[in-house]
Amino acid sequence: MYHMEETRNTAATATPTISGDRMSSHFQFSDKNSLPKPDVQILTSNGLRIPVHTGILASVSPVLENIIDRPHKHHSSEKIIPILGVPCDAVSSFIQFLYSSRCSEEELERYGIHLLALSHVYLVPQLKHMCSKSVGQRLTIENVVDVLQLARLCDSPDLYVKCMKTLSNNFKAVEKTEGWKFMQENDPFLELEILKFIDEAESRKMRTRRHREEQRLFMELSEAMECLEHICTEGCTAVGPSDMDPTNQRGPCNKFSTCEGLQFLIKHFATCKNRVNGKCSRCKRMWQLLRLHSSICDRTDSCRVPLCRQFKLKMNRQKKGDETLWSLLVKKVASARVMSSLSLPKRKREELRETIHDHGIRNFRI
């Protein structure tokens, strides 16, 4: 696409040329009188010659600088740099950017793909960034495969990722396009790359979904621990400490949806005849909640929750065996509890701490 041709002045051609006077107005220079006479010409695909200045081209593009600095066979010859394979107007917009560092939205919309290729070939990073952003904003189902191939060739990672995400989100529609069918026949490695990206994207979504579900479960368990302490210290509606006056019933708390379910579980646990032999699934759940609380609780002597101290003593006597999963659960719930407590105002946290330490009874009133 780029090399310098030299033709003798005597071998004049009939190709159209932008004159030096017209060039200033064509490229919108602020001070055309300050520019020296053009000393090189850009040759486009349709034969148009654009006179330009080697100093400006060399200062913006290192590739053009290397082309200009090549030794010439004939010192008296006319210098020509052909830029072929793209529309003439795209070349004009490219040259205008080299002079002014500006490119209109209309030009980016019409010639964004061509300008991206030119900016990559001639190492003009500012224009390349502008084109990548503009082309990415105009992605469609029909052109996404073609733009993806261009992004790979032009080493444009941002545009590449955006194309991949568009493909992943609209894969069924993209599969029906001519661009996809052509790519399948001519570039199977790119097809494999796309399918691999889609598979990894789905795996990430599944991991994220699973992580959110786990966090939701840990937050629910943390809330259950708070409700258990709340019931054992202050009482809630019909369930509370055994020393609380039955006529002094408290109203529903702000987490009553969780607290109510826990109250039903406590009522069942207190009256169930199978809670010790392990035949009752609801009682098993209550035993697990009590054990989980004991694993998290750091107030062994003042804790109001039943069996907290007993569970701690039992866990201390047991040898460290297959407790990895349980320890991980305790760690996750404790972390969720800390995050939940940090979301409370400071006054609420202090009131909750004082309420818990002011009581010392270990039984329910049901």
Rank of each mutant, 00 (worst) to 15 (best):
N254A: 03
L123S: 11
P87D: 11
V330D: 03
G55R: 02
F189G: 10
G136Y: 04
R8H: 02
Q288A: 05
N33P: 00
T208Q: 12
K162C: 08
I80H: 10
Q310V: 02
R207Y: 02
L123N: 08
R317F: 02
I83M: 12
Q137P: 06
H230A: 13
E200N: 11
I361D: 07
R102D: 02
E213M: 01
K346T: 14
L35F: 10
N143W: 00
N316Q: 14
M183P: 00
S24P: 06
Y122P: 05
R138E: 04
Q184H: 14
Q184E: 05
G179A: 00
A334T: 15
L329R: 06
N143H: 04
W180E: 03
D89M: 05
T140D: 07
R212Y: 01
S119F: 06
V63N: 12
R365A: 02
L153Q: 14
V124P: 01
G55K: 08
S302A: 11
Q126V: 10
K73M: 08
Q288P: 01
V63Y: 10
E185S: 11
T7L: 07
S93W: 15
L217E: 08
L118T: 02
P125L: 05
S327M: 14
P51M: 05
L150V: 05
F27R: 07
R285T: 09
T258S: 08
D21V: 09
F264A: 02
W287S: 11
I296A: 14
S295W: 05
N363T: 10
T140M: 03
L290E: 00
R291K: 15
S341C: 15
R347P: 02
K37F: 02
M23Q: 15
